[in-house]
Design a protein around this nucleic acid. Structure first.
Length: 684
DNA sequence: CCGCCTCGAGTTCT
DNA sequence: CTCGAGGCGG
């Protein structure tokens, strides 16, 4: 046993070397040789060995990335060479005049440039001694920063031991950031735990790195991109910035693969333009580009002014937040009759797209933010894509803007009362409610939305009826209520614009198929207020047919779990309206299945009581198909994770649900595991 | 009555 | 993905 200790030490060392090699391949070369799972296995065996033989534990071991016990405070580190900040320009003229100054100082010497992204993160300096990470420090005020060594060691793209021959002592500088995906995950977790959310990835990265307990840092998917040499001792360094970056890469650092070596100012401008358009595609937040003079001797010749080097410049991207004029607040009618205020704005180009309008949700929201027609407003395309009006730019307010009042907006002079903008019907506003409603079930605007909803995938699943076809059917007068689609004739459809024989036949076919949709989908398709997919499902379980449901009294309805007074009244009101009763007759005549035999409730289906949520793309079937299969086996499929969720099925490119599942300790399944689970019961 | 958990409805652009 | 609203338990 005794003599094998030496062997164990060798095994441990070999494992560490192997893991470090894969780290380099993964982070620096971007060319992994093994799967993540295989990598985790290596880490796992190393951790086991180290736990068994603690005498071989080393602070440089890749397992130390899990973090260490908390410290009281972070220490202070004095930077041997101060960390400067960058001068920045905000437009092309400023860039050109900056360039001209430099050109003059260099007396016209031509040189190459390196273009990089200005990643929105936290600048750090890492000191390596004899190839090992010694100290990691924040930028601080440029002279002294905080010691964050323990925390930085948990970041996987930070090499703890270098892969090649390095200077005896040197400092590398870079940016620690939290990639967008990681940011979303972290915030999702915090939301679950009820903690305040980080405003942006930069704050999240800074907060993570300054943790006193590095075990918390270890859980944040931080990244490091290196971009500068601080200083180096004991080795001759390459003569250009570009070569230094390549050298860093060979040592195992992650260098941004988007960096470019270019020839002229024109190339710099092109780099900037390209990334202004495409920055949304980057995995991290970038707030601009940085252009650096490539030859080190020219950098030295230029030196610095104050706290800013003269050989580099930051060129900021136009903000993803912008201001524009709110021309008018329009009211649109939703499918349930909700009257929604929409901001119509001067078109503004923001983050790669031109935005014309944004929802203002409701009157309360508008009042709260004090948004007025004519205001210059601040528009944001936050984390996700949907534009949001943040508020008015008060400094631009003239005084002529008018406060918004929905009722005033809806006021019809001829009728002497507020009226629906589409049909002129009366408007209803429930006590204590935020939303206003159009009271006319036959309102054309509502009808179009309703038709689209009726045809939607989760309702009647009639492919081919989208916005334009729905509008066309209504305009042509072919459809007065959704039931009319069942009496459409091929020639009628083919006669409409942009509709040929073939599409018409297809549509008729789809409509025919929809007659056998599950009863719950049909009830959902009716568009009864407060009755979505979930409630429809419960109603079917209890009542089995539309006829029974129509006859159900208030008490029968509220006896169903999760159905209370509001939903019961909404159902009663719906079925009381003559028009709706006629619609149901129309559906019946057309042969739509309005009843469904009682499900064998007591029969023990294999997945009974199991709740599934699916995230990401599946390979073998669509999400809907997968959900259908789960339901057939007695399971339920939901769209959101709750504490009752049994499994999260994780497909390709999953969303923030993974984080939620982790936080709630919910079992995750990959697609093949789901298939296995479904396959086991295939015969049933 | 309040706070928690879910569900429902609307949402921009290409 | 967000907020509002409904249902229900404490």
């Amino acid at each position: 046993m005794q003599d094998s200790l030496e062997n164990i030490n060798i095994r441990i060392e070999n494992l560490r070397a192997e893991i470090n090699r894969h780290n380099t391949l993964y982070y620096a070369q971007d060319a992994p040789e093994i799967s993540d799972a295989a990598y985790d296995k290596l880490i796992h065996s190393l951790r086991n060995l180290e736990a068994q033989y603690p005498q071989f534990l080393s602070p440089d071991s890749p397992t130390q990335r899990i973090g260490a016990a908390p410290v009281e405070t972070l220490g202070i580190v004095v930077h041997p060479k101060s960390m400067l900040s960058l001068a920045d320009v905000g437009n092309n003229e400023e860039l050109i005049s900056w360039y001209n100054r430099v050109d003059k100082l260099l007396s016209g010497q031509k040189c190459q440039w390196v273009c990089e992204h200005k990643i929105d993160g936290l600048a750090v300096a890492l000191t390596y001694v004899n190839g090992n990470l010694e100290i990691a420090a924040t930028r601080g005020d440029g002279e002294r920063g905080e010691n964050i060594t323990q925390n930085v060691k948990t970041i996987r793209s930070v090499p703890l031991t270098l892969a090649g021959r390095a200077p005896a002592r040197f400092e590398v500088r870079g940016e620690i950031c939290l990639p967008k995906a990681g940011f979303k995950k972290v915030n999702a977790e915090r939301a679950v735990e009820g903690l305040p959310l980080f405003a942006n990835p930069r704050n999240a990265a800074a907060g993570s790195v300054r943790q006193l307990d590095s075990r918390i840092t270890a859980k944040r998917p931080l990244d490091l991109y290196v971009y500068n040499l601080g200083y180096a001792e004991g080795m001759i360094m390459p003569e250009t910035h570009w070569e230094i970056l390549q050298f860093f890469k060979s040592l195992g650092f992650r260098v941004n693969p988007n960096n470019r070596l270019v020839e002229s100012l024109n190339d710099v401008e092109n780099f900037y333009r390209y990334w202004t358009e495409n920055r949304e595609t980057l995995p991290y937040e970038a707030d601009g580009i940085v252009a650096k003079i490539n030859p080190i001797h020219l950098q030295e010749q230029l030196g610095s002014v104050g706290r800013e080097p003269r050989w580099a410049i930051a060129y900021k991207f136009p903000p993803i937040e912008g201001t524009t004029v709110l021309k008018e607040i329009k009211i649109s009618v939703g499918r349930t009759g909700t009257l929604n205020p929409i901001a119509v704005m001067e078109p503004i180009y923001l983050g790669g797209v031109t935005i014309n309008s944004a929802s203002l949700h409701n009157e309360d929201d508008i009042r709260r933010k004090d948004i007025r027609e004519g205001d210059t407003v601040i528009l944001r395309r936050a984390g996700d894509v949907i534009p949001e009006i943040v508020g008015p730019a008060l400094s631009k307010r003239q005084g002529s803007e008018k406060e918004f009042s929905l009722l005033e907006k809806l006021f019809d002079k001829e009728k002497g009362r507020p009226a629906c903008p589409s049909c002129g019907s009366e408007v209803f506003h429930g006590e204590g409610e935020v939303m206003y409603y159009c009271t006319n079930a036959a309102c054309p605007a509502q009808l179009q939305e309703h038709l689209q909803h009726f045809a939607s995938r989760t309702a009647m699943d009639i492919r081919g009826i989208g916005e334009s076809v729905a509008a066309a059917l209504l305009n042509a007068g072919l459809v007065k209520d959704v039931g009319d689609i069942y009496s459409l004739k091929n020639q009628q459809i083919a006669g409409m614009e942009r509709m040929g024989e073939k599409s018409a036949a297809k549509l008729i076919d789809q409509i025919e198929k929809s007659k056998t949709r599950p009863l719950a989908s049909i009830i959902y398709a009716l568009g009864i207020r407060h009755v979505g997919e979930e409630i429809a499902e419960r109603l079917v379980k209890r009542f089995n047919s539309v006829d029974v449901l129509m006859k159900a009294a208030y008490d029968n309805l509220t006896a169903v779990p999760t159905i209370g007074p509001k939903i019961a009244e909404s159902l009663l009101a719906f079925f009381k309206i003559e028009r709706n009763r006629q619609l149901i007759e129309k559906l019946r005549m057309a042969g739509v299945h309005l009843a469904q035999p009682a499900q064998p409730e007591s029969e023990d289906l294999p997945l009974r009581g199991q709740e599934f949520v699916i995230t990401g793309k599946l390979q073998n079937f669509s999400r809907e198909e997968a959900e259908e299969k789960i339901k057939v086996l007695g399971g339920t499929a939901k769209s959101d994770i709750t504490k009752n969720t049994s499994y999260l099925v994780v497909g390709e490119d999953p969303g923030s649900k993974v984080a939620r599942a982790l936080a709630l300790g919910i079992t995750q399944l990959n697609e093949s595991e789901l298939l296995k689970m479904l396959g086991m019961y295939k015969r049933i």
